[in-house]
Structure formats: C-alpha cells, structure tokens
C-alpha cells in the first residue's frame, strides 16, 4: 500500500508538471547582492513651498491658484554606460500625483554608468500602439478613475493639471483651469549625467523636483485657462514650462 501511494504521488506530481505545457519556465533571479538598484525620489514644490492639492498658492502675479488634480507619467528609464550600452527598465511606468514621493525602478548590473534618461510622458511606441484598455487594471498605464487619456482620441495625457484661480486674491475663486497635455510631440525627455561607479548592492538614487509654479510661466490666466490637445499656443507654452518645472538631480 505504501508503494502504491508513493507511486501515485509521483504520478500526480509528474502529471501536474507535464499537463500544462504553456506554464512559464521558472524565472532565474539574480540575488540583490549581485545587482545594484535604481530609485527615484520625487519632491513636489510650489516655488519653495511644499506642494499639495487643495492648498492655496500665490503666483508672482498675485493670483491665487488651488489644484484639484496634478498628475503625470514617469517612465522609460534608461541607464547608459560609457560604451553607450543601454540598460532599460521595462514596465517601469508610474503615475505620479503629489502623494507619490518615490519609486523603486528596478535592478541593474553593478558597473559604471554614464547617464540616466527618462520620460515625463509615455514613450511613442506605447503611446501609439497601446490604449488604457490594453493593460491589466493594476498597471500604471491602465484606465484610472481620474483618467489620463482622451476617450475620443488615441494616446495618453502625459500631464494633467486642474484647479481654480482667484485672480484678485479676494478669497473667491473666479475661474477654473484645465491643462491636459499629451501627444508624442509633447513628451519631455529628462536626463542627467552620472559618471558614477555603482557597486553591487548599492542603490543609485535620483532626485526629481517638480515645481508646479513654473507651469504658469508666461500664461495669461485671464484667457489661457484650457488646453486639451490644443490650442497650439497654450500647449507650446505648457510644454516649455514643463521643461522648467521638472528638474532631475
């Protein structure tokens, strides 16, 4: 009986092993000790103040703004070594709002790195070929309640800023602003020279500062209140302002 039980147990194990040929091969993992890791810290600011939603901030014009939404995509991280070999971090997209202050991006070989690059926005292949409906609900690029896409148009909204403006700072908000910027032409490429040897087990830390005050540079807030794909002039200003708002250290 004992032999029979053992034989059947073996048969069950063997059957379970061969019955689903599509089961993925076991992933060979490298221990963390052999790898280095990449980490991002995000500092949300409004000029020198800490930034948060639903808080009043005063622009240099004297106008008061309050944000109800401020979110953007970060991703497409790449580390380049001196031989211009790239280390990518697939699936590293993150939807950032003011409550998000860090991201563990992934692991990489321990070696000398020359430069780090990333996108504020979504890379052109993903932005062109995929839609929020193509991702599992838990994915950063999946559909969200506070959506980051135009439902009538393909492609992601790269950054979305919404809120209210009190033009004369009398305590009453007069207008709402809505800036939804996307399309491949408006992706922001961020990069930083590293020139750094990264040892096994070491965490390479990046610091990203987002200064939300910079988004309003040069806008006439009496009229430049909305941007949804267009109008081109406001979109161009916001793209230029995004380059000022994001600082990678």
């Amino acid at each position: 009986m004992k032999t029979l039980k053992y034989g059947l147990f073996t048969a069950l194990i063997a059957l379970s092993a061969i019955s689903c040929e599509d089961d993925p091969d076991p992933v060979v993992t490298t221990t963390t000790e052999e790898k280095a890791s990449l980490h991002l810290h995000i500092d949300h600011k409004f000029n020198t103040d800490n930034f948060s939603l639903d808080q009043n901030f005063t622009l240099t014009s004297g106008e008061v703004v309050k944000f109800s939404t401020a979110q953007f995509y970060l991703g497409n991280y790449k580390l380049m070594d001196d031989a211009q070999q790239m280390t990518g971090f697939p699936d590293s997209y993150l939807l950032v709002d003011p409550t998000v202050s860090h991201q563990n991006i992934g692991e990489m070989d321990a070696k000398h790195y020359h430069m780090v690059m990333l996108n504020m926005g979504v890379d052109s292949t993903t932005n062109t070929d995929f839609q929020p409906i193509d991702f599992a609900d838990s994915h950063a690029l999946a559909a969200k309640v506070n959506n980051m896409w135009w439902s009538w148009n393909a492609g992601y909204i790269f950054f979305k800023l919404e809120g209210e403006i009190d033009h004369d700072a009398d305590g009453t908000f007069d207008d709402v602003f809505e800036y939804h910027i996307g399309t491949n032409a408006n992706r922001l490429d961020l990069q930083k020279m590293l020139h750094k040897d990264v040892a096994a087990g070491e965490m390479l830390e990046l610091d990203l500062t987002v200064d939300y005050a910079k988004f309003f540079n040069g806008l006439d807030l009496s009229i430049d209140l909305q941007a949804h794909m267009g109008p081109p002039a406001i979109v161009a200003s916001l793209k230029a302002n995004a380059a000022l708002a994001f600082t990678l250290d």
Binding site: Q131, I133, W150, W152, N153, A154
Partner: peptide, 8 residues
C-alpha cells in the same frame, strides 16, 4: 477618426 479600434 481619433479612436484606433473598437475596443478603445
């Protein structure tokens, strides 16, 4: 013509 497929 902005939506590329029926799913989207």
């Amino acid at each position: 013509g902005g939506s590329p497929n029926l799913e989207a």
